[in-house]
Structure formats: structure tokens, C-alpha cells
Nucleic acid binder design. Structure first.
Lengths: 206, 206
DNA sequence: GAGTACGCTGAACATGCATTCAGGCTGGCC
DNA sequence: GGCCAGCCTGAATGCATGTTCAGCGTACTC
């Protein structure tokens, strides 16, 4: 099930992601990954040296796709609408080749014990954080956002929400559907808006 | 390092948590857990039957302590102050025998692939959710909370935030300290308040 | 055409693992 | 005393895993 266009190296990376999604990092063996990629286990070691490096490389590969969506995609929207759209992109409009959230749960758990993974993760996060802050500062200056809010703190809040929703959508799916995740995200964004409070917040009967 | 007061069974559970925190679920071997608890590996199997059951049992044991804090502890506060206090209890006033957050990252990753763990988790979550909704409904009725908000949706938002902060505090600790986590939590709660907007929100220079 | 660097394989290796098992000890009960 | 049940051990078993390695083919260079 791996596209045969790319290099063997890329095929291995793709197979790694697939296998990790299916069985978890520790459950994904080199042998199975190799089999899924149609190569020998030796080749995997030849290219990546160790399983740890393989995982790191696979992380780098899948993270690019993910974060570029997270940061760049705004559907042409500006300001807070853009932030709302971020939630949509991440939770309801996920395209097929974006790895499912449980890959991230897996990576997070591992990163908590692997300094290298954690450092790579942190680097990305810092980048996203800047982008959030910047965008929210603009919303503040345009008057779209409440004037008494700190853009950086609000950015942390929104980004934290994405993390949390990732967990909830994966584990509490009976309670929190992707659509509900979006709804929660929109509620958070709406609370930031200045102006008439009865805009489009989460008003609904129990 | 395991208190010698309790039964061997409890000692094994405590050692399991310790070992999982240190090395992750897959890294924690029965043999090492047994050694840490001062018993034989055979006894672990005798009591729990399999490693999976051991993990499940350890989860149940540590979850009790955790969730009781989460749900009950309010420091005598009522309404939204209680919610704020929840963030404090979870992030800055964590007592020593509460397992660190990375245990949860571990459990979450595992639960995504273990129906049994996931079901146990979901049960707890549903309980917490009810408690949140109930408390927020009270805040709504007392007029403390904005009247246009849906308590259940707001509850989901706050609880999601706890999940997200758990990840951030564990992985992005250079960016998000426990104190900052509390600050984010307080910001979220403050946004729910009706009345004068310039109450105590996150206003600060960059 | 000899030499060589690279991509690649298949088999082998050592290790660590969860799990099993035959049996020992201990306390209570007839 | 004899019996039994429950707790517990140490050694053994079988298996899967990450990693190594000697060598094969191929393409490219002098």
C-alpha cells in the first residue's frame, strides 16, 4: 500500500508512519516495517542506523505536512476567522494522507522520554507559537479582538486547545466528535471577540 | 523506595506506576517491576495474570487519586472560582504522590490502541463531564457566567484545556511552566465571566 | 577492463521479554 | 498430626526483537 514512485528511503518512512499508527512505536518492528515497504530489514538499518533514528526521521517527515497545514492554511481568511479555520482544518477537513491523531499521542509519549525528539518538537512549537502571537496581535490591533487580552497568552490558550482536542477526539470520540471539536474551537475564538457578546457563541439547550 | 506498609499486591502496583513513569509502558518490564517491588516476577503474574492486566490495574489505582482531586477539590470555593482552582490543583499545587503527567501521555497513547483501557478511561471522563456541566450550570444560573453560553460546551472546553495543558507542561516546559498553565486556565475562566470585561484577564505587555 | 562506491540482501546473533511451572512455605482447620 | 489453600519463588521456555555482517550486483570512473 505504499506508493512505488518515490525512493526506497521514502517508502520506508511512509511504511514506518503507517506501522506506528497501527501498532504504536514500540509495537512497530523493523522487520514488519521493512516488509511493508517491500525491502529487507538490513536496508532499514543501512539507511537509518537505528530504530530511534528511524522514528525521528519519520517524525520529521510527517511533521512537515502537518505543521504546514497548521500554520499556513487559513482558507484565505484573516484574523480570528483564520484561527477558527485552523480548527476546521485540523479536525473536520483532515485530508486522507494526514496521519491520524494517535500518531501524535504516540510521539508525545515518546518525546517525554527522548531528549532528541523533544527538542525537535519544541522547535516546531516555538515556530507555531510565534505565528499564533503574530496573527492575534493583528486581530488585536484591528479591533477584532478584545483589547484587554494578551495575544501571546491567548495564542497559548488556542494552541493548547488543539493539543487537548487531539487527545479528546482520539480517546473520547463517543463524547467529542470532530464536529464537536470544531464547535469547541469556535466557542473559544468567539470568546475573544470584542463587540456584541451575542454574536455566534455556543448558545444551545442542554 | 516503596512503602513497606501495604500488601505486596499494592507494592507491585506502586512499583508499576513508578517504572512506567520512568521508562514508559513498553519499557517497563515485569522483571524490573518485580525487582523494584522486592518480589519475584512470578508473583506479579500470579496476582495479575498478564502484563496488560497489570497496567490496567495500575491505571485504576492511580486514576482514583487523580480524579478525586480533579472532581472534588475546590478549596471550598464555589462556581467559577472552583474551576480556576482546578487548574491550580492540577498544575501548580500537585502533591508529591500524584504521578507526573507523562504517565497520562503514556496511558493515552496506549488507550488509543487498547479497547479495555479506552473504555475505562471513557467512563471516568463521562463522570467528570457531568460534574463540570453541573457546576457550570450553577454558575450560569447564579449569573456569574455569561448568559449566552452553553454549560456543557463550556465544560468540554475547560476539560479539553486540561488535557492540552498536560501535554504542554510535559513537553513544552521551557515555554509553558506550571504557573503559565495556571495563567492560561485563569484566562479561559475569566472569558466566561459576565459583567465588566476588565476584571482580571490576561492583560500584559509582550 | 580493473577498481570502487553504493544500495541492498539473507542469514545469523545476542538479548530481553512475558509467561509457565513444579514445588516450597505458612497458617488455619479437622 | 494431617490436610489444604493461598502466597510465593527460581529456573526454565520460547519467542520476537534490534542489530551485525559478509557478500552480491550495478553503475560509474580512471
Amino acid at each position: 500500500m505504499v506508493t512505488e514512485e518515490k525512493s526506497r528511503r521514502d517508502a520506508i518512512l511512509a511504511a514506518t508512519v503507517e506501522e506506528v499508527v497501527k501498532r504504536g512505536i514500540d509495537g512497530a518492528s523493523i522487520q514488519r516495517i521493512a516488509a511493508a515497504a517491500g525491502v529487507s530489514a538490513g536496508l532499514v538499518m543501512y539507511h537509518f542506523g537505528s530504530k530511534e533514528e528511524l522514528i525521528n526521521a519519520a517524525w520529521v517527515a510527517s511533521v512537515k505536512h502537518f505543521y504546514s497545514r497548521n500554520v499556513e492554511t487559513g482558507g484565505g481568511q484573516a484574523g480570528l476567522r483564520h484561527m477558527e479555520n485552523g480548527f476546521r482544518v485540523q479536525f473536520v477537513d483532515r485530508d486522507e494522507d494526514t496521519p491520524p491523531w494517535n500518531l501524535w499521542l504516540e510521539l508525545w509519549a515518546k518525546a517525554a522520554r527522548s531528549p532528541k525528539l523533544r527538542a525537535m518538537h519544541l522547535e516546531r512549537i516555538a515556530e507555531i507559537r510565534r505565528s499564533y502571537t503574530q496573527r492575534l496581535r493583528a486581530a488585536l490591533e484591528s479591533g477584532e479582538m478584545r483589547q484587554d487580552l494578551d495575544p501571546e497568552l491567548v495564542g497559548d490558550l488556542l494552541h493548547t486547545l488543539i493539543y487537548g482536542l487531539a487527545v479528546k477526539v482520539t480517546l473520547d470520540s463517543e463524547l467529542i466528535s470532530p464536529e464537536r471539536a470544531l464547535q469547541i474551537g469556535k466557542l473559544a475564538v468567539s470568546l475573544l471577540r470584542s463587540g456584541q457578546p451575542a454574536d455566534d457563541p455556543g448558545a444551545a439547550p442542554a
